[in-house]
Design a protein around this nucleic acid. Structure first.
Length: 412
DNA sequence: TCTGGGGTCCTAGGACCC
DNA sequence: TCTGGGGTCCTAGGACCC
């Protein structure tokens, strides 16, 4: 409180969250750490490495309190949820203020509530509530913390729309904001005056929905149960450039294992494995960016099958002589385990044996209990076919022990 | 001289969101 | 020297198939 604080991305690469005081120092969203490091000494800037498990835990607690707003809840992101207030009796503004106070008291997190007849208007209300609280003068102070657009006379709503730059509207990003500006549309109010058919013709059906929502016509429904994910990714930037295939194989194997773990957590099977490698777009060196998709013989959640497919894909796109800055594995063509194991019979020999599934479960439990990556698949380019399980002694030490052995994998 | 229509798959990239 | 990660949806061209 009262101090400039930022949270840094992976590798402590750049600022991904800033306190108001840090914003006042001029720290930009996504700004590289090396450009602002000097502010540590000069202005007392506090920089912290991100701790996503902690944020997930805080989020869970906040969401359960926020669920008291109304009967239906859609958890939209780690720090946002939509609530369905239809049928809720009494003064909605006061109800929201009470929930907000409870979150602050129980969790210590300040939050804001926006209320409106559509999701896009509720998001706008939230933007008004947050800005009125944190940037005095941006909107009338009476809207701070909780802003109920549904309870507003039309003239007041128009005034708020006029005070809102069109780029602040949910669904309008940088590019479309520029295009709208070029057509003389600069505020949310200007945008609301457009005709849906015009927006559809000039831009897209997606932006047309945003417009209709802003005009009060609900086009985006509340999704109470999360739809199953369509892809799972594990990607990382490297601390220093990587040039050797063996090093990439090791990294990609790790990503594949991590992605497979998420896949098993979701109870899904993957049909395809995507691998990519690329150089840094910020450097003045030869650029290289390749992607490959490897189909799996049979949809699976087995780390070994997924890792082997990832390595095969990697080998097909690798080219020597480039400073690779980032790589990643994505699992595609996801389907519920029940579907790929269900009525479709692929034959006994191609199914994952039970001991393999148990091995995967055991590995997941070990990693959950002792820390991510404690147990993972080893894959060595030079060792070729010999792939066994290894144990990393401690996640935070760069060295880890590899136990090469010829013990059958299930027994190991 | 005149040179179709309808698919899929793969790769790449652009736009948006958090 | 050092520049994040994880998602969704949409579009488009080339290769290939019938």
């Amino acid at each position: 409180m009262g101090r400039p604080v930022i949270v840094l991305s992976n590798n402590d690469g750049c600022a991904i969250a800033r306190s108001n005081e840090a914003k006042e120092l001029g720290v930009k969203m996504g700004q590289p750490w090396f450009q602002i490091q000097h502010l540590q000494e000069e202005a007392g800037l506090v920089a912290l490495s991100a701790n996503f498990p902690l944020y997930g835990d805080m989020s869970d607690r906040m969401m359960s309190i926020a669920a008291g707003l109304g009967p239906g809840q859609e958890i939209y992101s780690i720090d946002e949820a939509f609530s369905d207030l239809s049928g809720v009796q009494g003064d909605l503004t006061r109800r929201a203020q009470a929930v907000r106070a409870r979150v602050l008291q129980w969790i210590g997190i300040p939050c804001c509530v926006g209320i409106g007849p559509t999701k896009t208007l509720a998001k706008l209300g939230n933007h008004v509530a947050k800005s009125a609280e944190r940037k005095p003068g941006s909107y009338p102070a009476e809207f701070a913390q909780v802003c109920n657009l549904a309870a507003l006379p039309e003239s007041d709503l128009d005034a708020l729309l006029k005070a809102t730059p069109v780029g602040e509207v949910w669904g309008i990003g940088r590019r479309i904001e520029q295009q709208l500006q070029a057509e003389g549309v600069s505020s949310a109010y200007d945008f609301v005056q457009l005709r849906p058919s015009t927006v559809r013709k000039r831009w897209s059906v997606v932006l047309e929905k945003t417009l209709r929502e802003l005009q009060g016509e609900a086009c985006i429904s509340l999704e109470e149960s999360a739809a199953p994910r369509k892809q799972i990714a594990c990607t990382r930037s490297f601390g220093r450039p990587v040039t050797e295939l063996d090093d990439l194989i090791e990294a990609v194997s790790e990503f594949a294992g991590r992605a497979a773990e998420k896949l098993r957590h979701d109870g899904s099977h993957a049909g395809q494995v995507l691998v990519f490698i690329r150089t840094s777009p910020f450097r003045q060196a030869p650029q290289y960016s390749r992607t490959s998709v490897t189909p799996l013989i049979r949809p699976t959640a087995d780390t070994m099958h997924i890792t082997l497919a990832a390595i095969q894909g990697l080998k097909s796109i690798f080219a020597p002589g480039y400073q690779i800055a980032k790589a990643g594995v994505m699992l595609l063509d996801l389907q519920p385990q029940s579907v790929s194991q269900g009525e479709l019979d692929f034959g006994e020999e191609s199914a994952i044996p039970d001991d393999r599934s148990q091995l995967m479960m055991t590995i997941d439990k070990l990693n959950q209990r002792y820390g991510k990556g404690i147990v993972h698949a080893a894959a060595s380019g030079t060792q070729g076919e010999r792939r066994v399980w290894t144990m990393r002694q401690l996640l935070k030490t760069p060295e880890y022990t590899t136990m090469w052995s010829d013990i059958p994998i299930a027994r190991a």
